[in-house]
Structure formats: structure tokens, C-alpha cells
């Protein structure tokens, strides 16, 4: 219910989930502090590609299948306050367009789904530690980055 009353939306990148869950990540403390600031005022959105990327990297870094398994289950079954969008074909095609037309090959396909989701759902605030996303031309104007 609390989620519905939050009108502002923020899109959360995979690297934020990695930082939040892995204390050895250089951005761990920053991620915790920033979540404290935004958790009560924003709807926290992400998508299944970004979650997939975060879980894979966390697994490779920690090798802790038990804990990553719990995280994966929570994302699919009890993700509140996060809302994980399933990237449908339309959004995949928009991401593909961004992916295949980038000037320099810096963005992964999951990065492109984040940009496509931000553009399609008019989410103007993005929480990422990725410089390449912050510098992406389509997002230069009118977008606010929390980092």
C-alpha cells in the first residue's frame, strides 16, 4: 500500500544491488546510505535483466549459491519494496535498438534494457554507479542520476 502513495520513481541498476549485497564492494557504504535517503520517497523499480546480471556477478564473486539462491527467490516472490519489471518483447526491441546503435561499444544488453525502460516508462531518476550509463546521450537532458 505504501508503494502506491509514492509518486516518484527511481530505476535501480544491477551494480547497485551488487554493491548493497557485497560489503567488499567499494560502493557498499554509499549504496546503503543512498538507499536510506530514497527508500521512503521513491518507488524502487528494476527489471529482470538487471536482476539477472546482479545475481550472476554476485555468484561469481562470492561463490555462495545458498545466499544468492535466497536473493533470487526474494526477487521473484517477495521483492517488495522493489518492483521488478519483466522486459517484454517491445522493450527488448527498444533495448536492441540502443544496443546496436551505440557509438562506442560500452553498454551491455542489460544496460540497454535499463535505458529503454527509463525512456518508455518516463522514469527520470536512475540509481547507478556506471559512468557509461550516466554519459549515454539519450539520457543527458532531464535525467537525474543518483550515485
Amino acid at each position: 500500500m505504501a508503494q502506491k502513495s509514492k509518486s516518484k520513481k527511481i530505476l535501480i541498476d544491477a551494480n547497485v544491488f551488487i554493491a548493497l549485497n557485497f560489503p567488499q564492494d567499494s560502493c557498499h557504504q554509499k549504496a546503503k546510505e543512498l538507499f536510506d535517503e530514497i527508500k521512503n520517497s521513491y518507488q524502487l523499480l528494476t527489471n529482470n535483466y538487471l536482476v539477472s546480471e546482479a545475481l550472476t556477478i554476485l555468484l561469481m564473486k562470492t561463490k555462495n549459491i545458498q545466499k544468492i539462491g535466497i536473493l533470487a527467490c526474494r526477487f521473484y516472490h517477495q521483492a517488495e519494496p522493489f518492483i521488478m519489471a519483466q522486459v517484454d518483447k517491445k522493450l527488448q526491441l527498444e533495448a536492441l535498438e540502443i544496443f546496436s546503435t551505440q557509438e562506442k561499444p560500452k553498454l551491455s544488453f542489460p544496460d540497454c534494457t535499463l535505458i529503454a525502460q527509463a525512456l518508455e516508462q518516463k522514469i527520470t531518476t536512475i540509481f547507478t554507479f556506471d559512468r557509461n550509463i550516466r554519459e549515454f546521450p539519450l539520457l543527458e537532458k532531464g535525467y537525474k542520476f543518483i550515485l
Partner: peptide, 11 residues
């Protein structure tokens, strides 16, 4: 909630 869970159970 999942955020609190993550904050309290880092890997």
C-alpha cells in the same frame, strides 16, 4: 521487506 533483508544480510 527485501531492502531491509539485504541491508541486514550482506554476503
Amino acid at each position: 521487506d527485501f531492502l531491509e533483508y539485504m541491508l541486514q544480510n550482506p554476503i
